[in-house]
Simulated scan of single mutants.
Amino acid sequence: MSDLLSRPTAALPTDKELVLKVIPMPADTNGNGDIFGGWVMAQVDLAGAVLPARIVQGRMATVAVKEFVFKQPVRVGDILSFYSSVVRVGRTSVTVDVEVYAERFATQGSYVKVTEALLTYVAIDGQGHPRPIPAQAPAAPGG
């Protein structure tokens, strides 16, 4: 644990929007006592959907996770901050980059980048088929 506390702190991104903050709890741990990677992935998917929802203006589905990199473990009690930016808006899809930073319980105020991912969401109609993104979609901050 001491090597986790001695790692250099990361600066929070200024080119992305804070879209979610969450504190993992003991029920979210794996057999090693760290936060289960699948739980973190689910939170990233939720955070990643915030900016596309503004653009898509309706139903959408996660269709791809091009890259997911775990850089550091997440621990119970960490305060996780999820930052996102729109990378690409296509005819039916929106791709976003999500970065996750942890404030360790014992070192509040300093941040460690714990993971990042690139996700693509597709606008869908009532039958679950891709549909065009509205032409009048609002501009996404940071994208």
Rank of each mutant, 00 (worst) to 15 (best):
R59N: 15
A135W: 01
T107Q: 12
L5T: 05
A137S: 15
A47G: 07
G33L: 07
F105D: 13
L80W: 02
P13S: 08
V114I: 14
G58D: 13
V65F: 02
D45K: 03
P141H: 09
P138N: 10
T120S: 14
G109L: 05
T14V: 09
P8G: 09
L51V: 05
G77H: 06
Q43F: 03
I35C: 01
V100C: 07
A10N: 14
A53N: 14
P73R: 09
R88E: 15
T14A: 11
V69Y: 11
F36I: 06
H129W: 05
I55E: 01
A135D: 15
V122T: 11
E67V: 00
A106G: 01
T120M: 05
V86Y: 09
V40M: 08
R131C: 06
D97K: 13
A47Y: 02
E116W: 11
L80Y: 04
I79Q: 11
S110A: 12
P13N: 06
A137N: 09
L80M: 15
K16T: 00
T115W: 02
M25F: 08
L18D: 02
G142R: 12
V112W: 01
S81C: 03
A27Y: 12
V69T: 15
V44G: 01
Q43R: 13
D3L: 11
V114Y: 01
T62I: 03
A135G: 06
V89G: 07
A61K: 05
K21H: 00
R54V: 00
G90V: 08
I23V: 15
N32Q: 14
T115D: 10
T120Y: 06
P138V: 08
G126Q: 12
A117F: 04
V63G: 09
I133P: 01
D3Q: 08
T107W: 00
V87T: 15
M60I: 04
V86T: 15
R131M: 12
T107N: 07
V114M: 05
Q136P: 00
G109T: 07
F105S: 11
Y111C: 01
T62N: 07
V96G: 02
G128I: 04
L4R: 13
R91F: 11
G38M: 12
V69S: 14
S2F: 09
R59V: 00
W39V: 04
G109C: 08
V69E: 14
G128D: 10
P52K: 05
K66G: 13
G31N: 13
V74N: 06
F68N: 11
S93T: 13
Q108A: 13
P13A: 10
R75P: 00
V114R: 00
T29H: 09
A64M: 03
K113F: 04
P52Y: 05
I124E: 08
S110T: 15
T95E: 12
D45E: 13
R7M: 14
T107A: 13
M1Q: 11
L119F: 08
M41G: 08
D45F: 00
A123N: 03
G58Y: 11
K71H: 15
R88M: 12
K21G: 00
A61H: 01
V94K: 02
V100M: 10
K21D: 02
P138L: 09
G31Q: 13
P24G: 04
V94C: 14
I35E: 03
G128F: 04
L118Y: 05
W39H: 09
F36W: 14
R104W: 02
A117H: 05
R104Q: 10
V74Q: 04
